[in-house]
Amino acid sequence: MSKNWPLWEIFVRSKNGLEHRHFGSLHAADAEMALENARDVYTRRNEGVSIWVVESKYITASNPEHNGELFEPAQDKVYRHPTFYDIPDEIKHM
């Protein structure tokens, strides 16, 4: 036999109130081990309060070749931003 430990992506919440952020990846035979390894590899310096692990093969990523159609149409939708609207200067907070 020579099957290699699969790759896992590691997400860590640095402190409560913050979202989980992608920290990196590592190899592990199963989810339990991935969690333990993530704890030992990515939180050695007190960097986290919660860990998510997901096997890399289960992540579906968008294709950068489609970036044009996916993301550029959002660029000119200025009316989604507050600065698009004119209001009198006297109104300070809105």
């Binding site: 036999m1 020579s2 099957k3 290699n4 430990w5 035979a29 199963d30 081990m33």
Partner: peptide, 9 residues
């Protein structure tokens, strides 16, 4: 060791 971990998983 690595093989055992895979087999166990």
């Amino acid at each position: 060791v690595r093989d055992a971990a895979i087999a166990y998983a």
